[in-house]
Amino acid sequence: MPVVSVKEVSKEYKLGKTIVKALQKVSLEVEKGDFVSICGPSGSGKTTLLNIIGCLDKPTEGTVAIIDQAVAGLSDAQLSELRNRSIGFIFQTFNLIPVLTAYENVEYPLWILGKGRKERHKMVLKMLKEVGLLEHKDHKPDELSGGQRQRVAVARALVTMPELVLADEPTANLDSETGGAVLELMRKMNREFSTTFIFSTHDPKIMNYARRIYRLRDGRLINGESEKNNEK
């Protein structure tokens, strides 16, 4: 059973009087435990595709199913629950909540999920330990480096044990060494928890971390199929 199934998805935006075709008839399937990269130059539609897979946006045409559940008929509240329960997000600009500590940022999705205090505490500490930030748990985001912030974001994305984690250019704001470390961390989590990862990048070095690569250009998948990254 694929974790993600995207069929014939198109997305059009109105930009003034012009209609921009961000995605055109894109179809893909991602299996459980996969580590997939969506590559392409800026403006190729990577973020739009991730937004649609992440139930943050709706396609103009086509269907999307997450863990065998069609998302088209779901209400806003149901989509929120689905994202909270089954999808983790890692953003290019980390997007941590500035007034919360690292611990509280990681704890937040669990609280939304309705987990009890003791369980939350256990899960947050475990996840902060996994990303190597246990001793920074009481630090606010502005007291952490870029790499540390992104590791908090990884912990926040994984703390609810979602089936799928979406990372939109997770290394774009990091130097290459820190970016590599974050990708290593994501791959470790992928192996350890069998979590499916889909990340977008335009950096060839970063895309090499993926097991499978989808290439996008002008809103279309090149050749319509993924490439198997034989190096991995």
Partner: peptide
């Protein structure tokens, strides 16, 4: 920040 809270599952 509101977008982030919504993305990670906060309802309206």
């Amino acid at each position: 920040e509101i977008g982030t809270l919504r993305a990670i599952g906060t309802k309206r």
